[in-house]
Computed example of a mutant assay.
Amino acid sequence: MDIPELGLDRLARVSVELDEILTVGPIHGGVRRVVPITGGRIDGDRLSGEILPGGADWQLVHDDGSTTIDTRYTARTHDGALVYLATSGVRHGPEDVLRRLFGGEPVDPREYYFRIGVRLETGDERYSWLNRTVFVASAARFADAVVYDLYALR
């Protein structure tokens, strides 16, 4: 029996604009931070539109500097469909790189690891394929944004 090999199809570039980090404080497993999402864009041939304000990343920063990502937010496509996005993943790297990143300095995304799984959901039939596709992304953190390339697994 041959099992299909995995492949990736790039769907879009997603730019998520962020507000100031709210530090909830130390909890079991690390420091809880909430990073409000204020807007952004999705730019791709099959999926494009705007990120709506109101979501957030409820991240957990661990003692080793790694961060567990947990976001939920909404987008409106260029033709009016609403899409729910939820990401989960991890960001980690060498201590000096993470210190620069946490300090808001520009850091080459090849210097650290930032990967996420992305779940997309919609009730709009034109985009129903989003509900039954698995998505992953490679991401970069900037002082006021996260940018990621969104890929569909085939």
Results as ranks from 00 to 15, higher is better:
2 D>E: 15
3 I>S: 13
4 P>H: 04
8 L>C: 05
8 L>G: 10
8 L>K: 09
9 D>F: 11
9 D>M: 14
9 D>W: 12
10 R>P: 09
11 L>T: 13
12 A>S: 09
13 R>L: 14
13 R>C: 09
14 V>I: 11
14 V>S: 04
16 V>F: 01
16 V>S: 03
16 V>R: 04
17 E>N: 15
17 E>I: 15
18 L>N: 00
18 L>Y: 04
20 E>W: 00
21 I>T: 15
22 L>A: 07
23 T>K: 01
24 V>S: 00
24 V>T: 11
28 H>Q: 15
28 H>K: 14
28 H>W: 11
30 G>M: 06
32 R>D: 03
32 R>W: 05
32 R>F: 05
33 R>I: 15
34 V>P: 00
36 P>D: 00
39 G>A: 10
41 R>V: 06
41 R>E: 12
41 R>Q: 11
42 I>R: 08
42 I>N: 02
42 I>E: 00
42 I>D: 05
44 G>D: 07
44 G>M: 04
45 D>Q: 07
45 D>F: 05
46 R>M: 15
48 S>Q: 03
49 G>T: 04
50 E>K: 13
50 E>L: 12
51 I>L: 00
51 I>F: 02
54 G>F: 08
54 G>M: 03
55 G>E: 02
55 G>W: 05
56 A>M: 12
57 D>K: 10
58 W>C: 06
59 Q>N: 15
62 H>S: 12
64 D>V: 07
65 G>P: 10
66 S>T: 09
68 T>C: 08
69 I>M: 03
69 I>S: 00
71 T>P: 05
73 Y>C: 01
76 R>Y: 09
76 R>M: 13
77 T>V: 08
79 D>P: 05
83 V>S: 02
84 Y>F: 15
84 Y>P: 02
84 Y>Q: 13
85 L>E: 11
86 A>F: 03
86 A>C: 11
86 A>K: 11
87 T>R: 08
88 S>E: 11
88 S>H: 15
89 G>C: 02
92 H>L: 12
93 G>E: 12
94 P>L: 12
99 R>D: 14
100 R>K: 13
101 L>P: 06
103 G>V: 09
103 G>S: 12
105 E>Q: 10
105 E>T: 04
107 V>W: 00
107 V>R: 00
107 V>E: 05
113 Y>N: 04
113 Y>E: 14
113 Y>M: 07
114 F>D: 04
114 F>E: 00
114 F>G: 01
115 R>P: 05
116 I>L: 08
117 G>W: 06
117 G>I: 07
117 G>C: 03
117 G>A: 15
118 V>E: 03
118 V>R: 11
119 R>I: 13
123 G>R: 08
123 G>I: 14
123 G>A: 07
124 D>N: 10
125 E>P: 12
126 R>Y: 10
126 R>H: 07
127 Y>A: 08
128 S>M: 02
130 L>G: 01
132 R>K: 08
133 T>G: 06
134 V>R: 14
134 V>G: 04
135 F>S: 04
135 F>V: 10
138 S>A: 13
138 S>K: 14
139 A>M: 08
140 A>M: 02
142 F>L: 14
143 A>R: 14
143 A>M: 14
143 A>T: 14
144 D>V: 10
145 A>V: 12
146 V>G: 06
147 V>C: 04
147 V>L: 10
148 Y>I: 01
148 Y>P: 02
150 L>A: 07
151 Y>K: 01
151 Y>S: 04
